[in-house]
Design a binder for these strands. Structure first.
Length: 548
DNA sequence: AATTTTTGCCC
DNA sequence: CTTGTGA
DNA sequence: TCACAAGGGGCAAAAATT
């Protein structure tokens, strides 16, 4: 574990991506055969292989475990946390300051750490939390401060060293002299970076193939702004369909047995029994990409109603009736023994349309082909925008625009698939509280709580960090420090003077904030130094937007 | 038995 | 899900 | 262009606590 900690420090202190990859490649290459898979998994920032499930150790358990091993009080932790904005770094500090552990103890190996994590993940039932806490405390007891720092970061799943799974692919390619694309392809099929590491080492990458019963990674789309010039679109054929607000999912049928996988590759078949039932017994084996939707009378219900069905272990009959689900299929990755990810979308779509699997719970996503002549002219722009409006009128988020010639590229967010969305409106809100950020933002006030007006009162409606540049955040930090009303921990109540323009997806009723409303996907569009708090948006405006 | 806390994961 | 950053 | 870091709202499940 010492080597892993030292590697992470070195990677974190290196800006160059190629240099980071070189460092990790060296580490992976030098590893004992039995530990390579673990090393690769850890380098990807995961405590466990994806298939092992969740660790279920969070900040609370880690703090309790740390308290067993190191003597500290709350203010010690708070101070150390302020220095790092990260519990891993904070704990390392606390351990440095405390009594050094005995020189005579077994050094911590990554194998030991991995097996302890696996054991923790298996804990369940009464007392499980205590058991996990004890297991983690046991690791900390044997750890040096540096090792403890990275134990914490692994458990959090955030190494924060500018290095994750996608770069482990490059590192494996470099370490074992294999083409990066072979490694990437093996990962797509296997899903387990540890297994892929062993295949790369043993020159057996081609043996990882897509298999029924295992999820294939999802292809992603790049956002394009409504009303822009659509310069992202190139000459060629595109498929245009509605962008549904549901749960991305992969449906598979193998020998009549259905599987559903979530975007994070979890098996969620059990949560959606009506969809599974509709697919059970299907005579054709296939893998389809699509969206799980709350579907009634040919229309998708709002995401809010879908959310009550997320991660349900056993949805009861009443819920099944009130939020009925369908799978909206829009791509075909495999049919029988043929894998189609390298085939162009045009062909995949054609074969999807002929799939003998459709029913009320397994629906074909409607769409049309569009010939784009780049650069997009006025006529084509208005055509796209009227298609967009039609999609909105059907209650959907916007449009998906997919290059007909493209293969299915898991994990990539390139110029093959685009999502066209538009914000409904923006709100001008007053910043009433700010918080110190985490990680590299630990010394700036990066997180704003903002409010709208109601009579002479300000009522909070949301929080946001994203949207401002680092420079703007740094400048405003100074202002907020000079205009602080009170402080509690890392949160400051500030004079209500700064107005920010906030964009969002939708407004929904919520008990989280004083206004009685909350925003989905809030982000700061810009500072509004030209506006005073008396010109901020009102609760009535928010209420009106919630009707949409 | 009912409520609260913690966690993970969907967008 | 979103945005900004840097190689 | 790509991969990454950092952050939001909201829900269900599993345990812990009352």
């Amino acid at each position: 574990m010492r080597e892993f900690g030292e590697l992470c420090e070195a990677v974190a202190n290196t800006a160059s991506r190629t240099q980071k990859v070189r460092l990790v490649a060296g580490y992976l290459k030098s590893h004992a055969p039995s530990e390579l898979a673990i090393a690769a998994t850890f380098c990807s920032g995961r405590p466990l292989p994806v298939s092992a499930g969740a660790l279920r150790i969070g900040g609370s358990q880690m703090l309790a475990a740390a308290a067993r091993v190191v003597a500290f009080d709350d203010s010690d932790v708070a101070k150390a946390y302020d220095r790092h904005g990260d519990f891993g770094g904070a704990l390392a500090d606390l351990m440095e300051a405390g009594p050094q552990r005995s020189l005579f103890h077994a050094p911590l190996t990554i194998a030991k750490v991995a097996s302890t994590f696996a054991q923790a993940a298996r804990c369940s039932g009464s007392g499980a939390t205590r058991a996990r806490e004890a297991l983690f405390a046991g690791l900390l007891a044997d750890a040096t401060p540096l090792e403890a720092k990275y134990l914490v970061k692994l458990v959090t799943g955030e190494l924060r060293m500018g290095f994750k799974e996608a770069l482990v692919v490059d590192a494996l390619a470099a370490a074992f002299d294999r083409p990066a694309k072979d490694v990437r392809r093996a990962l797509m099929a296997s899903g387990d970076i540890g297994e892929v590491a062993e295949l790369a080492r043993d020159d057996r990458l081609p043996s990882a193939t897509i298999a029924y019963g295992k999820p294939v990674g999802f292809m992603l789309a790049s956002p394009i702004t409504f009303g822009g010039r659509y310069a992202e679109l190139e000459d060629g054929e595109y498929f245009v369909e509605d962008k549904f607000d549901g749960i991305r999912a992969q449906a598979q049928v193998k020998d009549g047995q259905p599987f559903l996988f979530s975007r994070r590759l979890n098996d969620v078949t059990i949560s959606y029994p009506e969809v599974a039932a509709a697919l059970r017994g299907c005579s054709t084996n296939f893998i389809a990409d699509g969206e799980l939707l709350a579907w009634r009378d040919g229309r998708a219900l709002p995401f809010k109603s879908l959310q009550t069905r997320l991660s349900r272990v056993a949805p009861d009959a009443e819920l099944l009736a009130s939020v009925p689900l369908s799978f909206m299929a829009f791509d075909l990755l495999a049919e029988q023994d043929e894998f189609l990810i390298d085939h162009p979308l045009a062909e995949r779509r054609r074969r999807l349309e002929r799939l003998p699997a459709f029913s009320d719970q397994f629906v074909l996503s409607p769409g049309t082909w569009l010939r784009v002549n780049a650069p997009v002219d006025d006529l084509q722009r208005s055509d796209l925008e009227s298609r967009f409006s039609a999609a909105r009128a059907r209650g959907n988020e916007g449009l998906m625009i997919k290059a007909a010639a493209s293969g299915y590229l898991p994990g990539r967010r390139g110029r093959q698939w685009f999502k066209l969305k538009r914000e409904l409106a923006t709100l001008d809100c007053v910043v009433v509280a700010v918080e110190y950020g985490h990680g590299k933002r630990n010394s700036v006030l990066s997180d704003y709580t903002f409010a709208v007006r109601n009579d002479d009162k300000l009522l909070t409606v949301g929080k946001a960090y994203s949207g401002l540049t680092d420079v703007e955040i740094a400048e405003k930090t100074q202002w907020f420090l000079q205009h602080t009303v009170s402080r509690r921990g890392r949160r400051l109540i500030v004079e209500p003077e700064i107005v920010v323009e906030i964009a969002f997806d939708i407004v929904q009723p919520s008990s989280l904030h004083e206004s009685g409303f909350a925003l989905r996907f809030p982000r700061i569009v810009r500072l509004r130094p030209d506006k005073s708090p008396t010109e901020a948006s009102t609760l009535d405006e928010v209420r009106a937007l919630a009707q949409h």
